[in-house]
Write a protein that binds this DNA or RNA. Structure first.
Lengths: 252, 252
DNA sequence: CGCACTATTGAGTATAGTCAACCGGTGTGG
DNA sequence: CCACACCGGTTGACTATACTCAATAGTGCG
């Protein structure tokens, strides 16, 4: 059987809060991670003008669904999202996890429609970035233009990294790489790189990594038994980062 | 052992022809696939002005290597390329195949250096696209800007498709999907979608798909025995496209 | 308080990997 | 010009990794 068809359909809540809040990039704590990187104050002001909407998305609710027309990118402000592909038979496969400061929806530019669904993993908030207006602004602000290209390029890099992981690594190396990656992303956001709470289930991790939830669970147990990490449900503590890296490299 | 560490180092020729030929997008037969899509004649003219260089790359030669500074994108004019990741132990893993009209180097925008190497699979020719000048032009020509964003976005989509394939499909479905994809790409370029010559070895296909060369070889034989394709070394004829699609869908 | 969800663990198995032998075509050097 | 070596490919026998099925337990939401 396919390792990644979840056995139960996702219980996703089809309601999205439409509460809209004026926001501004100028006062956002994620400036350094998000679109405004490297901009001057007046430029950030301009950017803030087109990003005038925030949306709350409750845990389990869709931010967008496959097939929705593409009009906006979404910058995660708080919380976390998963993106997923739904096949005819209803099977879901996770294609990515997104944390605060990361941009959702880049893939939809090429198709004018959403190719994947995006679901909040916890109560979350996103900034709505109208794409046509953004393109207009990119033409006015070269710094922003270049940074945006870097962001898209980084998405490509990230996917290629995952491809290498999926095509070339064994189960334990995949999970180790996943944990290291998460740890780094939390660190960038000012959280501990050694203690964090997973936002996703074993099944979602498995779907993302091309493994079954049982394999993921067993590997967590083995890593813990070997003293690499401590795990209590979704709480993870990295004990021996070096050994974790060695697991990744072992048969890279 | 890792399924994707080639047993022999690539025999790649480190010499790249520096022959430079004036070219112009206006007269290029790949217009409809490449950067000029949707541009007016004067706009194509402007684009042609910044893409003034062609480079020949002989079979087995590097177009660029990991770590090279990023200055240009490369549009494949004729021939085909593979991109590869080289790990410390010298193992190579294929991250992509590129045919005429496709753009190489998008991933390097984010890092200012090449993250992968690019090697010609046959005697090839590329158009050199100076990226800074391209960004300048994108600010002048909104159509080009939007199309460029679509091209980057398509790269993201393509990678995500491969991720889904690697994470969720079994060996036979991976190879079937690979063949269907190649067939479509050849068709877009005006070649037969049912008869074509593979530009890559079984080992390269395996590396790309996360399989061993033996598994790839066995699958070719099985597909042939089942009447889905005919294979003679690198010559492939698709006999039963529908059945091939069924293999992909079977346990998608 | 109970049901549903998430996670853990065990037993058996299938898929794809490893190791190895062999074949044919191509190109090189004696 | 032929012989040989090498590369790419095929096929077989055996094996290991990760999947499937299943039983159980702990949480937490309603």
């Amino acid at each position: 059987m396919n390792p990644n068809t979840p056995r139960s359909p996702a219980r996703t809540i089809p309601i999205m809060s439409t509460r809209e809040v004026r926001t501004t990039c100028a006062s956002c704590s994620l400036q350094e991670l998000c679109l405004p990187v490297g901009l001057s104050d007046p430029e950030i002001e301009k950017l803030g003008e087109i990003i005038s909407l925030r949306q709350h998305v409750r845990r389990g609710a869709y931010l967008y669904r496959i097939g929705d027309p593409f009009r906006n990118l979404f910058a995660v402000r708080t919380g976390a999202f998963k993106t997923l592909d739904v096949s005819e038979d209803g099977g879901e496969k996770i294609t990515g996890f997104y944390l605060a400061g990361e941009i959702l929806g880049m893939d939809a530019i090429s198709t004018d429609r959403q190719n994947f669904g995006a679901v909040a993993l916890e109560d979350s908030e996103v900034c709505v970035v109208p794409f046509t207006q953004l393109e207009h602004l990119l033409r006015e602000i070269p710094t922003l233009q270049h940074h945006f290209h870097k962001l898209m390029s980084r998405d490509i890099m990230r996917d290629q990294g995952l491809m290498l992981l999926l095509a070339g690594m064994r189960a334990e190396a995949r999970l180790a790489a996943f944990l290291i990656g998460l740890s780094q992303r939390f660190a960038q956001r000012g959280y501990s790189s050694t203690r964090f709470r997973l936002r996703m289930t074993r099944e979602e991790i498995g779907s993302y990594l091309g493994l079954t939830l049982e394999t993921v669970s067993r590997l967590f147990s083995r890593f813990a038994a070997d003293g690499l990490i401590r795990v209590d449900r979704r709480e993870v503590e990295v004990i021996d980062l070096k050994a974790l890296r060695a697991v990744v490299d072992h048969r890279e």
